[in-house]
Structure formats: structure tokens, C-alpha cells
């Protein structure tokens, strides 16, 4: 590990003031410290904001909620208001990482966690995101965790956050404090930039910007919300593909539909046209197939993500079946079939 200076910020202004070229904010540390140990991130100064007061609260904000950037993933996912009004967010968070990590992880840190592309993680390999201009080892490499949408020749990486997908489908906004002290907001979907030829730039944040909160709009009353994450084991793995769905039924038609997708792009992926294809339609296989056909790209940017095309189509359909009640309820961990001796 490269030696670094640890500084505890006394206030947001103090934290901003300390941000320089080689400085990093540390919140829960669950991503930053891992990356520092393997020297993928090598800040010479680490500014701890985790003790700043007031940033760990969930407060009413109009009809919605304002979630402080230091609210832990566990607190957020288990908050009774969230579970009642924005359940897809709770589900998305609980689908990520492990209980221990969620206890430390923060709302701000989760949004800004780095990609899990294995070449980003390996300093022996070229990576335009980690070391701009060196090339992209994922091209021609191993690619199971790479993206399907929004990639460029210079970078194929996906953003790994589940929480961000839950926030995106809800139309949440990120509150950002600039070093000047000014505060602005950005929709979560616009927080992230696509890699283009600068994969090292991942968000619209400027130097000294600190995420102070996430703002949830009013709850979507009467909607069915679900988060479906498909991964290589039942828990504690990043998404191959995930789908967040908020559906409002009016009799037997879909009155409103909002979808967001994870594991497939450098940001939570949304496609307004797909939402449009569902709105006003009956929840039936042909409707779902049409939406899926529109969403899924014709080709994959990397041969090893080709499987994500059918998987995304199928996961979208499975999620819509679940959200519209077509799939029924099944407990997969259920015990022995009736009649079998124990």
C-alpha cells in the first residue's frame, strides 16, 4: 500500500478545501480501501467525512425524502418509510454485497463505487480507466462482467451498483455541494458519463464536489415494485443483469411503467421507449416480448457478454411477470415436498 495522509474533515467546507489532485474522500471505505490495498487507487491524502454530523439522516423533503450521503446501505434498506413507499430501493440495496459490507457502505460511496472489470483491478494490465491512454485489456480479454450498452472502444466496463439502479427507476436526484459551497442536483441517471475516449472520467462531478444527499421524489402510490438481480450465485455477487421495475396497473392494463437495468452499462441503464411500449398495454407475453426486443441490442460489444442479450430479455420478461402478478409466488428455499419423509 502506498503511504498516505489521513485527515478527518471537520465540515463539508473543510473537506472540500482539502481536496486536491491526489486526494480521495473516504466514507465507508469498503470500496476505496480494497482498491488502495492493491494500488489501483493511490491517493496520497484520504479525507474522512464519515464523522460529519447531520449527513446520516433520512428526512422528509416535500412529499419525498432526503437521504444524507452518509446514511448506510443497511439503514436505508431497512427504513420503514423506504420499505413502504419506495420498496424497489430497499430491494435493490439488499440484493447487493453482504450484510457486513452494507453496514459500513454509505449512500454516497455506493453511487461512486468503481467498476468491477477485472482489468481495472489488475495493475499489470492496460486499462484506460485506471491509467488513461494505456489501452483496454478487456478488448480481447475475459469479459463476463462487462457492459452491453454505452461502451466505447476504449472501455467496456459496467457500473456495479444495485442501489443506483433502484434510485434511477424512481427518478431520484443526487445533491452535490461544490467547493464554492453552492449546491446543485442531478438526476441519478445523469450523474454518470459514458466512457467515450475518456473512461477515466466517470461522473459529472468536479474537483472538490461532494455528494451530500440523494433526494427521492414522492412515492408512486399504488405501484408494484420489484428488483430482480441475476448473478453467478444466489447472494453476494455482482449482477450479470438486473432489472428494477415500477409498474402501476389499472385493471388489466399497465397504466405506468418505469424500468432501469443494472450490470449492463457504465451507469444504471434506462430506455424511455421501453417504458412507453408497456404503458397502456395488457401484461401479456407479447407485450413483454415487444419491450424486450426493443431493449436488447442486436450485438454485444464483447463476445463474452453475448449471453447477456438473451439473459436480459429473459430477466426483463421474468421481472414483468413478477411485477404484474403473472408469475405467481414461489419460495425457492422451500423444504421437502409434502409426503416425503424427513
Amino acid at each position: 500500500m502506498k503511504p498516505f495522509d489521513y485527515q478527518r474533515a471537520h465540515s463539508l467546507a473543510d473537506a472540500s478545501g482539502r481536496m486536491g489532485d491526489a486526494a480521495s474522500i473516504i466514507a465507508g471505505g469498503t470500496n476505496l480501501l480494497d482498491l488502495m490495498k492493491i494500488q489501483v487507487m493511490t491517493p496520497s491524502r484520504v479525507i474522512d467525512i464519515s464523522r460529519l454530523s447531520g449527513m446520516d439522516r433520512i428526512e422528509p423533503h416535500g412529499d419525498g425524502l432526503r437521504i444524507g450521503a452518509l446514511v448506510t446501505n443497511t439503514t436505508l434498506a431497512t427504513d420503514a418509510r423506504i420499505r413502504a413507499g419506495w420498496p424497489v430501493l430497499s430491494r435493490a440495496i439488499l440484493a447487493g454485497a453482504s450484510a457486513q459490507i452494507r453496514n459500513k457502505a454509505t449512500t454516497g460511496g455506493n453511487l461512486l463505487q468503481r467498476t468491477r472489470c477485472p482489468y481495472f483491478y489488475d495493475t499489470a494490465m492496460a486499462c484506460n480507466k485506471r491509467a488513461p491512454g494505456t489501452g483496454c485489456s478487456a478488448q480481447g480479454g475475459s469479459g463476463r462482467m462487462l457492459a452491453l450498452f454505452g461502451t466505447s472502444d476504449d472501455c467496456l466496463a459496467a457500473h456495479p451498483s444495485d442501489m443506483a439502479v433502484g434510485l434511477a427507476v424512481l427518478g431520484a436526484e443526487v445533491e452535490i455541494r461544490a467547493s464554492s459551497g453552492d449546491t446543485r442536483t442531478l438526476p441519478v441517471t445523469q450523474l454518470y458519463t459514458l466512457p467515450g475516449n475518456r473512461p477515466d472520467i466517470e461522473t459529472g462531478l468536479e474537483k472538490g464536489d461532494i455528494i451530500t444527499a440523494v433526494i427521492l421524489p414522492a412515492p408512486r402510490i399504488g405501484t408494484r415494485q420489484t428488483y430482480r438481480k441475476v448473478r453467478d450465485r444466489a447472494s453476494y455477487a455482482f449482477a450479470l443483469v438486473s432489472v428494477a421495475a415500477v409498474l402501476k396497473m389499472d385493471g388489466d392494463t399497465i397504466a405506468e411503467a418505469a424500468l432501469a437495468f443494472g450490470g449492463v452499462a457504465p451507469r444504471p441503464w434506462t430506455d424511455a421507449a421501453v417504458n412507453g411500449l408497456l404503458t397502456g398495454k395488457r401484461p401479456e407475453p407479447a407485450t413483454f416480448e415487444r419491450a424486450a426486443a426493443h431493449l436488447v441490442p442486436d450485438t454485444a460489444p464483447h463476445p463474452e457478454t453475448a449471453f447477456k442479450r438473451p439473459l436480459l430479455r429473459r430477466t426483463l420478461i421474468a421481472t414483468l411477470r413478477e411485477a404484474s402478478g403473472l408469475a405467481g409466488q414461489v419460495d425457492t428455499a422451500r423444504n421437502a415436498p409434502s409426503g416425503a419423509p424427513q
Binding site: 441475476v230 444466489a234 429473459r314 430477466t315 420478461i317 421474468a318 414461489v330 425457492t332 428455499a333 423444504n335
Partner: peptide, 13 residues
């Protein structure tokens, strides 16, 4: 149990 859409497999017992 195998999910017919996603191919996820859960061992039940």
C-alpha cells in the same frame, strides 16, 4: 428449482 426464464438454479434440499 430452476427459473425457466433466467436459468438461475436453487438447490432446495
Amino acid at each position: 428449482a430452476v427459473n425457466q426464464w433466467t436459468g438461475e438454479t436453487r438447490v432446495r434440499r
